[in-house]
Design a protein around this nucleic acid. Structure first.
Lengths: 350, 350
DNA sequence: CTGAAAGCGCTTACAG
DNA sequence: CTGAAAGCGCTTACAG
């Protein structure tokens, strides 16, 4: 069934059928009704490729998760507590707005080609990019394509600043710096003076922000950065577990630990528990992200809530906006990240 | 940049360019090389819509998650431990095979229309459907469209049996019945005679299978089905928590409990713990699915491992196979589900 | 208000 | 081995 068939059946031309489908105003109600009736009756659906080829939009947006340079088992990206909610909200929000979403994961530069293709082949109207920015070069390539693009968790200053206003581009971030400050000051207020950190991946905007806020806040309050209490991490639980175990065996413990995300905080708690270190009695812990699991473990984890839902929703609204925009626009939004206090912290020294 | 431009640049016709792109054999190596060189140089990508319109495939498969009739907060479908791994494996497997994947969630009949459209509008070559089969009518509608379709966790007997071999269709299941039998017999072997169940959603194939296996196995071993120990559930943690709390307050406890999935088992454990009932000392628990969390809680949950990864991978291979198949074919596969023994069960009566 | 016609960018018999 | 031409199913100036 093609528009031609509908036209014949309704006794009009293909042009008119097209006008009805596209909701043009210059069609008399009677004609419109007749055409719609036939369309309805035959369950006609215009071929999306023909429409797109003739200049219409694809009504599809891309969601691309970059996961390069991670361990082999990083294959489980969508089970990750960071990506899963993004997929969730992006799909739902886009669907609700009448868009399909095309998903592709980037594990290798080859995969990255596929997402460039998705744009070049005009499979999508616009895309959302989320992931580490280690491969910022590739991201820049994408930006330079000038297609509607939204970046989640990227450092604006690193993205071809000179071109920013020539693009249909938006960047969505969370206020990780402020959230971390709130967490560290909460600990300080509880009397902690020896505060450690499990760092996140440094090729990530949020990883750097959280670390910088940690360092700056300690310094601001005249507290020392003690090397033994600074654990290298990569946002993954395995590393955090190993590092926490090492700390536990090292003998000297901080009285509080800020973990750059919940996954690592929870693994560290497991490690401490196995080494007979009690949280929060001997060691207070704060995580970041506030994943579902945070409130389900014992003790319940105090954590900085990442506004991931808001970010994902905003990302979709932004791409759609960018797809509709005539002029190139660049914009950036940051959503606040607030501390959620639960049971994993105690006043120091008792 | 269109194929015409490439043709001019390479000094050949569009036909030849097309032949090169589609890897036809009747192009001399020299010509092919020349064309490829130009394509490479200009980073040309054929427009996917034009190709599709001219009869080529879309190289896109659909992944549709049905989540109708669930609570409002079911919005979090992709964070669900059942769907998340499916998304993961489907996307990865499809991407690795050179396919894009289009995702759409079905919360309402309206959404269901969108997925029918995805087929009718020829946006995808084939699709994978997963979710409750309460709305089997809608699924049948889809099946009758004759497009390549793979169903995960559906009761074959309910799907238009008469048409089965006229379709490009495949059904992928897990051997939940056998897995549940293994779990129940393990409990019986541990000496348990009072074994309860938290039921899953009965509009789900796996929900019914798990329940039936539970009942049959008890009966086979001459054990009674005691009503107080049969808790209604729906695979969601809230309900399980409530039911478990009710059981705890009821006074009379079974000595073992089979939960139709891990999410519910874990929530029940929380409820029991809060009511001072110790697992496994006072009550043994077995879950189903073997989600990541199962091995991370304490005590570690004994569970029947759902071969969800295998199922998801197989689903992708199947759709791709169906897309390539000339003749309609129907096939069905079931993957074994085996018991993984951890720490949440103890011998009865000590 | 409406139809005939051109065009979107490919692929694929067809003819040579 | 290769090009000219028709066709895939739409949309959209253009003319009336």
């Amino acid at each position: 069934m093609r528009s031609e068939d509908i036209a014949k059946l309704a006794g009009v031309s293909r042009s008119t059928v097209s006008r009805v489908i596209n909701n043009y105003s210059n069609v008399p109600e009677a004609t419109r009704a007749k055409v719609l009736q036939v369309i309805e009756q035959y369950q006609y659906e215009p071929n999306s490729f023909a429409r797109a080829l003739a200049g219409k939009r694809t009504d599809t947006i891309g969601l691309f998760a970059i996961s390069m340079n991670e361990k082999e088992n990083a294959t489980r990206i969508y089970q990750n507590s960071y990506f899963a909610p993004i997929v969730d909200l992006v799909v739902d929000t886009a669907n609700a707005r009448g868009f399909y979403v095309l998903i592709h994961t980037v594990y290798s530069p080859g995969d990255f080609q596929k997402i460039k293709q998705a744009f070049l082949q005009k499979r999508i109207d616009g895309g959302i990019l989320v992931g580490t920015q280690k491969d910022i070069e590739l991201v820049r390539e994408l930006v330079s394509q000038e297609a509607p693009l939204v970046l989640i968790d990227y450092d604006i200053s690193e993205i071809m600043a000179e071109r920013l206003n020539k693009n249909h581009l938006a960047v969505i971030n969370s206020m990780d710096y402020e959230g971390t400050v709130e967490a560290i000051e909460y600990l300080i207020q509880l009397g902690h003076r020896e505060i450690g950190i499990i760092k996140g991946r440094m090729n990530t905007f949020s990883g750097r922000e959280r670390n910088m806020a940690y360092e700056n806040t300690l310094q601001k309050h005249g507290l020392p950065l003690v090397e033994d209490f600074i654990l290298e991490g990569d946002f993954l639980k395995e590393t955090a577990y190993r590092e926490a175990a090492r700390l536990a065996l090292g003998g000297k413990l901080p009285t509080a630990l800020f973990s750059s995300n919940d996954d690592m905080a929870i693994s560290a708690m497991e490690a401490f528990s196995e080494h007979g270190i009690s949280v929060p009695d001997q060691l207070s812990i704060i995580g970041f992200d506030d994943v579902q699991l945070a409130a389900r473990i014992s003790p319940k984890l105090t954590s900085v809530k990442l506004p991931i839902d808001d970010m994902a929703k905003a990302a979709v609204e932004k791409v759609i906006g960018l797809c509709n925009a005539e002029e190139p626009t660049f914009s950036t939004v940051s959503f606040p990240a607030r501390l959620v206090i639960r049971d994993s912290c105690k006043p120091a020294g008792n």
